[in-house]
Simulated assay, not measured.
Amino acid sequence: MLAGILISAAAMTAIVAVRYVLSSGGFAWATSRVRPGLYRGLEPQIRKEIGWSLASAAIYGIPAGVVAWGWQEHGWTRIYTDWSAFPLWYLPLSVLAYLAAHDTWFYWTHRLMHRPKPFRIAHAVHHASRPPTAWAAMSFHPWEAVTGAVVIPALVFVVPIHVAMLGLVLTIMTVMGVTNHMGWEMFPRWLVHSRLGEWLITASHHQRHHDLYKCNYGLYFRVWDKLCGTDRGLARP
Rank of each mutant, 00 (worst) to 15 (best):
G4F: 03
L6V: 14
A10S: 12
I15V: 15
V16W: 06
A17P: 05
V18E: 04
V18H: 12
Y20T: 04
V21D: 06
G25L: 00
T31L: 01
S32R: 14
R33K: 12
R33Q: 10
R35D: 05
R35V: 08
G37Q: 04
L38C: 01
Y39Q: 08
Y39L: 10
L42S: 12
I46V: 14
R47V: 09
R47K: 15
G51L: 11
G51P: 05
P63K: 08
A64P: 00
A64R: 06
G65L: 00
G65V: 05
V66S: 06
A68C: 02
W71Q: 14
W76G: 01
W76T: 06
W76F: 12
I79Y: 03
L88I: 09
Y90I: 08
Y90R: 05
V95D: 08
V95P: 04
L96S: 10
Y98R: 01
H102T: 10
D103P: 05
D103S: 03
F106T: 02
H110M: 05
R111V: 14
L112T: 14
M113F: 14
R115D: 08
P116Q: 04
P118C: 07
A122W: 13
H126G: 13
P142V: 09
W143S: 14
E144R: 09
G148F: 03
A149H: 01
A149E: 10
V151F: 07
V151N: 06
A154H: 07
F157E: 00
F157S: 08
V158T: 00
V158K: 00
I161Y: 02
V163K: 00
A164K: 01
M165P: 08
L166S: 11
L170I: 11
T171S: 11
M173I: 13
T174I: 06
M176C: 12
G177L: 10
G177V: 10
G177F: 13
N180I: 00
W184F: 14
W184Y: 11
W184L: 06
V192G: 05
H193Q: 15
H193M: 09
S194R: 02
I201R: 05
T202A: 11
A203S: 15
H206K: 03
H206V: 05
R208K: 12
D211E: 15
L212K: 04
L212M: 13
L219F: 12
L219A: 11
L219K: 08
Y220M: 11
Y220V: 09
F221G: 10
F221N: 08
R222L: 15
D225C: 04
L227Q: 02
L234A: 13
